[in-house]
């Protein structure tokens, strides 16, 4: 029997499985976390006292929170442009697919495959101070020993560098999928018109990648604000809170000190910050081209 649905109904059916999953394992826990954030909850007392927004107002006077917010923003400002640019460049570089290029592509993608914890531990050792392998290599060039992750000015940029080493492969992959969708005829036509590589990029590739770039920027921003693993593994927020970031602060509060109320409040602040940023990115970038 053939029967057709109202498009609305079809839409709901298409999203139903996803919505069920998102609700059950995303939104319901989220609501629970919100309720927790309104209580003085410490995993002991099932009837934790309701404290209203006290956990939120406490954040305002929490110096570590402000440091974490500043550091996380600085980190995002370093990471997002870096990873996006590197990812796009890599994608453009490995465009024409030959056997050698496939090998290059695999090399650029390789750090993505390694577990984050392992990768972070690896960088910790490579950049150990003052006698780790990297310092040892630099000594060949008579560079004095660097403190790297122990230095309050180098630590955060180094983590950004590490993350972009780890994740640029994903950005590359996403851009590659985008490049693949650009019809070859467009380039052929441009080629006939005698447009050079740079102009082709400016006139065809970049505009057509707009939607993907929007995606990449939004995702990279979200991921940047959620930075946790390398901080957890390598610096634990130090030295001098130079790498104290929001999710690490949240983790420490929630799981080490068992201040679940504070941690939940923190996660909602984080949520609002990122949602605002993402919405802004959508607005700005959509304004440029018809999204």
């Amino acid at each position: 029997m053939r029967w057709s649905l109202r498009p609305e109904t079809a839409g709901y059916l298409f999203v139903l499985p996803a919505v069920l999953g998102l609700l059950a394992f995303g939104i319901i826990p989220l609501i629970y976390a919100f309720v927790v954030s309104l209580h003085n909850y410490d995993l002991v007392n099932p009837r934790a006292p309701y404290v209203g927004l006290a956990n939120y107002t406490a954040l305002a006077t929490d110096r570590v929170f402000w440091t974490a917010l500043r550091n996380t923003s600085a980190y995002a400002l370093m990471l997002v442009p870096l990873q996006t640019a590197v990812g796009l460049s890599l994608a453009l570089m490995v465009q024409p697919s030959t056997r050698w290029i496939a090998l290059l592509r695999a090399s650029y993608f390789m750090p993505v495959v390694v577990s984050y914890v392992v990768a972070a531990g690896l960088w910790e050792i490579l950049f150990a101070a003052p006698n780790g392998p990297m310092n040892s290599l630099l000594a060949l060039a008579h560079v004095p020993p660097q403190l790297f992750f122990q230095d309050r000015h180098q630590a955060l940029p180094l983590i950004a560098l590490m993350s972009s080493w780890k994740w640029s492969g994903i950005t590359m992959l996403i851009y590659l999928s985008g490049l693949h969708e650009i019809p070859a005829e467009l380039y052929e036509a441009a080629g006939v018109d005698g447009a050079g590589g740079l102009r082709q990029f400016g006139n065809i590739t970049w505009p057509l990648l707009h939607r993907i770039t929007l995606f990449v920027l939004v995702v990279n921003t979200i991921e940047a604000f959620k930075i946790f693993t390398p901080v957890y593994v390598i610096t634990r927020g130090g030295p001098l809170n130079a790498t104290m970031v929001l999710v690490f602060h949240l983790f420490r509060e929630g799981f080490r000190y068992v201040h679940l109320g504070d941690a939940s409040a923190l996660s909602f602040v984080l949520l609002v910050v990122i949602l605002t940023l993402a919405t802004l990115q959508f607005r700005v970038l959509r304004g440029e081209s018809q999204g």
Binding site: W3, S4, L5, R6, P7, Y12, L13
Partner: peptide, 23 residues
């Protein structure tokens, strides 16, 4: 256009029915 195509064969109430069934 999609809406037009869809509306033709959909009896009233199907949506509610389906939603209930799915639930």
């Amino acid at each position: 256009r999609a809406q037009k195509v869809g509306r033709a064969g959909t009896p009233i109430g199907r949506r509610t029915l389906l939603a209930g069934a799915a639930g």
